[in-house]
Amino acid sequence: MGWFKKHSYPPFWNEYISSFDNHSEKELHHIRFVVFDTETTGLNPKSDRILSIGTIAIINNTIIISDQLEVYLKQDTFNAETVKIHGLLKAGKLEKVTEEAAIMEFLKHIKNAVLVAHHAAFDIAMVNACLKRMGLPNLKNKVVDSGFVYQNTLNSANPNLHFSLDDLSKQFNIPQHDRHTASGDAYITAVLFLKLIALLRHQKANLKLDDLIIPKKRIGLL
C-alpha cells in the first residue's frame, strides 16, 4: 500500500522523504539540529492553527544565524484571546503565506535534521495536523524536547515535572528578547539547548543523540 501511496504524494514531500535516505549521522557534533517554535491560535492541535514558525539551526555546538526560517501564515481561524500573547493579528503587516506554502518551506528547510523544540510534542502535533490537512503523513524527523533534556540534567525520575521556557531561560541566564515570537523563542531554545548539552556532557562523557530523545513510550505526553 505504501508503495502506491508514495507515488501519489507531491514532489516536495518526496524530496523531503528522500533526504532521509542517507545513513543518518550519529556523532552529536556532526548532526544538524533545527530548533523551532510555533506560535498558534490555541493549544488544541485539532482545532487551532499555526500563526508563525521560527527556526534556527545548530551544527557542531554553533548556532548558524543564516540557517533559519521565519514564516507567518494566513489565517482562517482566529482566536482573539491568544493575540495578547503572540501579538499576531489576523491581518497584520507581515508578509504571510498559506499554510500549505509554509509547510512546504518548512520541510525544505528542515530536511532530515533532528528537530528541537521546548515541549516539542505540541509543536510537532501542530505541524502534523497541517500535514494531515494536506493529505500527508507525519513528520519523519527525530525530535528532541529541550524540556526533557533539562529533566535529564536533574537526574530526576519524576516525569511530571514541567518547566516553562520562561523558567528555564531565567535559570540559565538567557536574555528574553522577542519572547513569544516564533523566531525569538526558537533562538532562546537554541541557546538553552547548547547550555543543556554542555551540562549533560559533564555527566556523561560520550553523549549520544539517543540520550536526548524521549523513549518511545512517552511520546504523546504533553
Binding site: 521560527g54 544565524i65 533559519q68 521565519e70 522577542d178 525569538g184
Partner: peptide
C-alpha cells in the same frame, strides 16, 4: 525576514 539577525545587529 530574520528577527534573530535584527537582534544581533
Amino acid at each position: 525576514m530574520n528577527t534573530i539577525a535584527l537582534r544581533i545587529s
